[in-house]
Write a protein that binds this DNA or RNA. Structure first.
Lengths: 224, 224
DNA sequence: CAAAATTAAAAGTAATACTATCAATTACTA
DNA sequence: TAGTAATTGATAGTATTACTTTTAATTTTG
């Protein structure tokens, strides 16, 4: 727990950025407005030039923080997973019963981010939407293996592991903890996306949440 | 069945292309080599100019077939899903027992494409890899809703429906047929990806296939 | 207050994602 | 088989992207 708290303001792999955006006002403005802008125009149309104009700063200044927009996306999504991991650990830590603990974990991982805690420049509600729409693009690249070696995905991987461990705690006979964990985490994003854009491909809607569905899915797989 | 067979050479939504690539030698060369090239360099680095050079043709000629590379990706992935749908319907059609039918369906949807039937210019093995690596990018865009309205994803949607119907056949009490179907189809791609690039996040490997995992997942969820 | 670091502004480069024009080739049809 | 239409190739051009470089102005810090 302690190490996690000091990790908050989420500790991002230092190779992802050139200069830590948390270390200056400009850096924070870059993060704040990149979230707004990516959400608004989509990652494809988002450019450092446009962002520079929006925050009344210069393109070249943004390049001093991030090599390119792909790295910025890695930064934002890492932050998001780190933030979610914090929620997860914080909320489940005190729960002794493995089943209850797992339930809580699934809830946190699959729910829609609703409240903007907004104690920072980071809007978690929008960031959640960005993760739903753009996260895959950060790893579906020709450079995944290198970047994975550099540790760019380590927070995400740690989160998958944590959930996987909780699954094991409930049923140590179950053979597919890692796959089920990754299915839930990635699948939750997917169901949220479908709910918005392909309602015929999901049973999730106003009444049925992804949480309901995944709760059922997971506990059907684990021994009673 | 009959309508499906006449649909083969897969019937692609006509708005996806400007000129039907099946209608000419150049068109077929575009498809054939775009598959090789996207697989080789990744979708991001793939350009019509490079493709033109590779097939000894001109950039502008390729633009007469496809508006842009995004449309080409839609074409390729639609073809893939249509091809898979054909496999699915062909192999399950004669099976009367709903459980057996579903098993076969899951097997077809989650397996690795191994043999290149190669009776055409389309290499299905490589195309399967492209779908694993690039399919998400075709719908994770700001234009999804428009393009969905235009019917660009209808083959994929039909496939999800088919599996969903088969789930319902086995257990008509189960509440999440659509979500489970979309989870299996998207999740299968994801597990194949993880197997290659993030082995620690999956239990799938040489011995355990995604098929094994999803078979277990699905039949745990449905009533015995 | 001086030195160091940061940022802004402007200009430049190479590549991408096209579009337009026109000539050459091929196909089809009368 | 000539004549016309359709297709393709070659070249050039535009706007935008994704940067890099340089220099000057501003801010921070010691």
């Amino acid at each position: 727990m302690k190490y996690l708290l000091q990790d908050l303001k989420v500790r991002i792999n230092e190779k992802i950025y050139i200069k830590d955006p948390e270390s200056s006002t400009l850096g924070k403005r870059i993060i704040e407005h990149s979230i707004l802008m990516i959400q608004e125009v989509g990652f494809e149309s988002f450019t450092f030039k446009k962002l520079g104009e929006k925050i009344g700063s210069n393109e070249s200044s943004i390049y001093r923080y991030f090599e390119n927009k792909h790295k910025l996306l890695l930064y934002l999504t890492s932050w998001y997973w780190g933030w979610l991991e914090y929620q997860l650990v914080f909320s489940t830590n005190s729960i002794a019963n493995p089943k209850q603990k797992l339930k809580k974990a699934i809830e946190i991982i699959t729910r829609t981010v609703k409240e903007d805690s907004s104690f920072t420049h980071i809007n978690e509600v929008l960031l959640n939407k960005i993760v739903i729409n753009e996260y895959s693009k950060s790893y579906l690249t020709k450079e995944v293996d290198e970047e994975n070696k550099e540790g760019y995905f380590s927070i995400y991987k740690r989160l998958v592991m944590r959930l996987s461990d909780m699954l094991k705690e409930v049923d140590n006979q179950y053979q597919y903890c890692s796959s089920l964990s990754s299915t839930v985490i990635e699948g939750a994003l997917h169901q949220h996306f479908l709910k918005e854009h392909f309602p015929s491909l999901t049973d999730c809607n106003k009444n049925v949440t992804p949480t309901t569905y995944f709760m059922n899915l997971v506990f059907s797989s684990l021994k009673k």
